[in-house]
Design a protein around this nucleic acid. Structure first.
Lengths: 126, 126
DNA sequence: GCTTCAAATCAAATTTTGTCAATATGATCT
DNA sequence: AGATCATATTGACAAAATTTGATTTGAAGC
């Protein structure tokens, strides 16, 4: 029977463990962060939240969205880390997470910054 | 016959003109920038390009993607501004655009930075 | 406990994205 | 010009994201 070195497998295939249950590549995880900024409605929501913390009912008033639609987008925003929510009795308040948006910014820089090791990959004899 | 003030309309509805032909909201335009980072394959491509300029054939070799698939994703990357392409005879070379990725970073900060005017929007008497 | 209200979840319909194979374009070479 | 190679475009299909309305959950008030 083959033995597995989980750590080695995860590293080799760039797979990470999330919530103990799900498997996802690091790419999926990174993509999730930027999903926040990839949809018109969500950008509009972020714009509203830039004006300060708001509860769902206020957002609902100002957006062309139904209740379940708002809930759907808020979930994506919260899962991206860019927005945080706090419950107050029946109400849920949302605000932009400083930490989360700083992370998104750092990640973006990371993802576009030249590698330390630049390979000379002159395939087609440029 | 009603007269229209185009400038006023564009400003009011936050619509912008692109390529002289198409109409799009500012939100769509912003979303386009971050589409670059919202897909596993594209993140993988960016990772390869962090190692320096590469031509399509090299990318093709290293990715689990067909030729038309690569072309599809490269188009989205180039349209986001994060990647730039240059033609060399039959070959197309791609690299990460410093300007484009700096813009993406600035935009991200912009989209998450608190507004100068913070409204007190205590709807549900928090 | 029952009612009410806010928000989340679900299921179905719709729209948007991504994939794949075939074809078209455009540059180079003979 | 005709052949060849690299990439782009197209159209059909599959998969994922979004929308909508109905239902459920969970907190508060009676």
């Amino acid at each position: 029977m083959t033995k597995f070195d989980l750590k080695h497998i995860l590293k080799t295939y760039q797979i990470i463990l999330i919530w103990g249950d799900n498997l996802a590549t690091i790419y999926e995880e990174h993509a999730k962060v930027f999903k926040a900024f990839c949809d018109e409605k969500r950008l509009r929501i972020l714009e509203l939240l830039r004006g300060g913390e708001k509860c769902a009912c206020v957002l609902l008033e100002q957006l062309d969205l139904g209740q379940s639609g708002l809930s759907y987008h808020m979930k994506i925003l919260v899962e991206s880390g860019v927005v945080e929510s706090c419950q107050e009795g029946k109400w849920t308040h949302y605000k932009i997470s400083e930490k989360g948006s700083a992370y998104a910014g750092t990640l973006l820089k990371e993802l576009t910054k030249p590698n330390t090791v630049i390979e000379k990959n002159n395939c087609c004899k440029k």
